[in-house]
Amino acid sequence: MTTALFPDLVVNGETVPQAVVAAEAQNHSAPAGKPGIAWRKAANAVAIRTLLLQEARRRGMAPDPVEVGPGRFETDEEALIRGLLDTAVEVAQPSEADIRAEWARDPERFRAPPLWEVSHILCACNLADEQAATLARARAEALIKQVRDNPRRFADLAKQNSDCGSGAAGGTLGQLGPGDTVPEFEAALRDMAEGDISAAPVPTRHGYHVIRMDAVAHGAVLPFEAVRTKIGEAMEKAAWARAARDFTDALVRGAEIIGADPATAPEPGGMR
């Protein structure tokens, strides 16, 4: 059924069920009260997916789903799109000169992971419990004030107040690197310099933290040989994405599409 707001999507004479577009619309954001925006985004994405499936079937391709996670396999449609793009899109590997030029453009981008020496005081709570979270935050704010008034008291305050086992050692957590702690805690560390004390309590799934950055070792710039493979893989992936987009754009230009305008739509699912 066609409506003024949500017209039928027809791709090369194939009418796509509105239920398919509605399901895709759940993956697209839109301002409150403006469902038409999400619908148009979804229609564009579905139009491209339909074009790719039509092309795969035109070529007589059959789906060959692969495992994409433990016990989780591609759908037949995902497998068809992947197979089509793997067949139709080819890119040359970047040359040694191109890889070296990409590295030389800004070697500072390629560093070893940093190391942080950190101490903290944990005021544990379940953040979903509003009353407990309010009390824990107030405790942490009071501790921050005490630490800022007298930084030398940090270890004693940790021993007396921290809900973490590290409190017995004055709050010290030793050396941490990326991935060693929860993302919210790590994000706070990345914004701190040596000697800093968190200006406000840092919330994580464990509660509120008062953090002191005891030392920072910024990762050294890595030599070309250490990052050559990573750069080459990234360049090849970017080139593949551009070529896949060009292939899709060509399908769009040669198609008759009613109810969508996918010329500027994002890449469809199934692309690398």
Rank of each mutant, 00 (worst) to 15 (best):
E256W: 04
L251E: 02
R105W: 07
N12L: 06
D261P: 00
V68M: 12
G170R: 05
P114C: 12
V16D: 07
T87H: 13
D129H: 14
R153W: 01
M61Y: 06
I211N: 02
R109G: 09
G36L: 10
E96G: 11
H209G: 03
L115G: 05
I258V: 14
A79T: 07
A250V: 07
W240E: 12
A128T: 14
A32K: 14
R253C: 06
M61G: 04
K41V: 09
I257F: 05
V252P: 00
P201L: 01
A22W: 02
P151M: 08
G71H: 03
A169K: 04
E256Q: 13
R190I: 12
D129W: 13
A140W: 00
P65T: 03
G179R: 10
A38C: 10
D191A: 15
D64Y: 09
A45Q: 06
R153T: 12
A140V: 05
G179Y: 06
A101R: 12
I81L: 09
A138N: 10
I144S: 02
G177Q: 08
T50F: 00
Q131L: 14
L9H: 03
A56F: 04
R137E: 15
P223N: 12
C125T: 14
Q54S: 07
G33V: 13
E130V: 15
F73L: 15
V21H: 01
K230E: 15
A112P: 01
T87A: 15
L53I: 13
F73G: 11
A132S: 13
G71R: 08
G165T: 09
G165Q: 10
M235K: 08
G179N: 11
P31F: 08
G269W: 15
E130H: 10
T75M: 14
F247E: 02
A79E: 05
I121A: 00
G207V: 05
R272Y: 09
E55S: 05
Q160D: 12
V20Q: 07
L52T: 01
N150S: 11
L222C: 08
N150P: 00
E108V: 09
C164D: 15
E194L: 08
D64N: 13
R272H: 11
K237H: 13
H120P: 01
R153F: 01
L53S: 00
D86L: 14
G165M: 06
E102R: 10
P65D: 04
K34C: 13
E102V: 06
A241H: 05
E90A: 15
G177S: 10
V16W: 09
P94M: 13
A4S: 14
